[in-house]
Simulated scan of single mutants.
Amino acid sequence: MGKSEGRPRETARLDTPPADRGTILDAAHQVLLHTGAKGLKLDAVAREARVDVSTVLGHFGSRQGLIEALMDRLYASPAAGLAADTASLPAVEERWRAYLKQVRRMHGDQEATEAYFDLAVLALRDPELRARLGRLNVKTARGFREVIGAGPDALAELILAAVDGIELRRALAGDDYPIDAVLGLLDRMALTEYLRD
């Protein structure tokens, strides 16, 4: 028997304190932004977080678990931002405009857009991720409806679908896409519907 047989393999020690879930999710988000879904591998995330792969596995169990947690986080951040931006706004029109302001900020972040669509493509090909993304979309629509505080559920669904479609078309067209004109039209159409009552 050789000297190393029967002993656990040594792993490289990193000079950092143990990472929490948030730190690892931050690292996963950075990897996703820079390399896309194909590069979202446990070793790449561990390297970015400056931890061992076993630490990532300890928090998330698998690459699938990490992706699910990242999806949850990426969906929660804009919803929390919208709720914070609109909490003190009394009028539907003001809350709607705060939402449009947030949409414009998101449209300006090309890396985040690409990351979002990378995850959406993963979800299209994986039944479990698709179901999770579907639940997140339902939750987002419900939260949007509660924040805006007006209009039927179908209007919230239509607006969110329109924003996703606008973002995809803008991402594909780049700077040539008439984002201001399209969002301006969406603004007028939505307000017509919201303020109709």
Results as ranks from 00 to 15, higher is better:
residue 19 A to D: 01
residue 62 S to H: 05
residue 158 L to C: 14
residue 66 L to S: 05
residue 130 R to M: 03
residue 185 L to P: 07
residue 156 A to F: 03
residue 86 T to Y: 06
residue 183 L to V: 04
residue 83 A to D: 13
residue 157 E to A: 14
residue 192 T to Q: 12
residue 128 E to V: 13
residue 71 M to G: 12
residue 140 T to C: 00
residue 11 T to A: 09
residue 193 E to K: 07
residue 157 E to R: 13
residue 131 A to N: 06
residue 43 D to Q: 09
residue 85 D to F: 06
residue 24 I to K: 02
residue 106 M to T: 09
residue 1 M to L: 14
residue 108 G to F: 05
residue 111 E to P: 09
residue 168 L to M: 14
residue 63 R to A: 01
residue 165 G to K: 00
residue 27 A to N: 05
residue 150 A to F: 09
residue 7 R to M: 09
residue 4 S to Q: 12
residue 66 L to K: 01
residue 102 Q to V: 05
residue 117 F to T: 01
residue 117 F to C: 00
residue 179 I to Q: 04
residue 7 R to D: 09
residue 135 R to Y: 03
residue 187 D to L: 05
residue 73 R to V: 12
residue 30 Q to R: 12
residue 73 R to M: 11
residue 196 R to H: 08
residue 88 S to M: 12
residue 2 G to S: 10
residue 192 T to K: 10
residue 142 R to L: 10
residue 194 Y to K: 08
residue 186 L to K: 01
residue 104 R to P: 00
residue 143 G to P: 03
residue 69 A to E: 08
residue 184 G to T: 06
residue 69 A to T: 08
residue 121 V to T: 01
residue 5 E to S: 13
residue 141 A to V: 02
residue 155 L to R: 02
residue 106 M to R: 08
residue 20 D to L: 01
residue 181 A to C: 15
residue 98 A to D: 06
residue 122 L to V: 11
residue 145 R to N: 06
residue 112 A to V: 08
residue 19 A to V: 02
residue 34 H to Q: 11
residue 15 D to A: 13
residue 107 H to P: 08
residue 44 A to M: 11
residue 6 G to L: 04
residue 75 Y to F: 03
residue 164 D to A: 15
residue 3 K to M: 11
residue 134 G to D: 03
residue 105 R to I: 06
residue 42 L to V: 10
residue 117 F to H: 02
residue 82 L to T: 02
residue 165 G to N: 02
residue 75 Y to C: 01
residue 39 G to P: 15
residue 105 R to H: 14
residue 30 Q to D: 08
residue 18 P to W: 05
residue 86 T to D: 02
residue 45 V to N: 04
residue 23 T to F: 03
residue 47 R to A: 10
residue 38 K to A: 07
residue 6 G to P: 04
residue 134 G to R: 04
residue 9 R to F: 13
residue 119 L to G: 00
residue 2 G to Q: 07
residue 145 R to P: 01
residue 34 H to A: 11
residue 22 G to D: 10
residue 44 A to S: 13
residue 44 A to W: 05
residue 35 T to A: 15
residue 39 G to E: 13
residue 27 A to R: 03
residue 72 D to N: 12
residue 196 R to N: 15
residue 160 L to I: 12
residue 2 G to T: 12
residue 11 T to K: 13
residue 4 S to V: 14
residue 103 V to D: 01
residue 7 R to L: 12
residue 77 S to H: 05
residue 83 A to Y: 05
residue 156 A to Y: 00
residue 67 I to R: 04
residue 188 R to A: 07
residue 83 A to R: 03
residue 42 L to Y: 06
residue 57 L to K: 13
residue 38 K to G: 11
residue 28 A to F: 03
residue 111 E to W: 09
residue 70 L to S: 04
residue 74 L to P: 02
residue 153 D to R: 09
residue 72 D to R: 12
residue 144 F to P: 01
residue 195 L to Q: 09
residue 126 D to V: 10
residue 161 A to Q: 15
residue 163 V to I: 11
residue 161 A to S: 13
residue 74 L to Y: 06
residue 135 R to W: 02
residue 56 V to R: 06
residue 76 A to Y: 03
residue 4 S to E: 14
residue 61 G to T: 05
residue 54 S to T: 15
residue 177 Y to F: 07
residue 179 I to K: 03
residue 169 R to W: 04
residue 48 E to R: 15
residue 127 P to R: 08
residue 59 H to I: 00
residue 87 A to P: 01
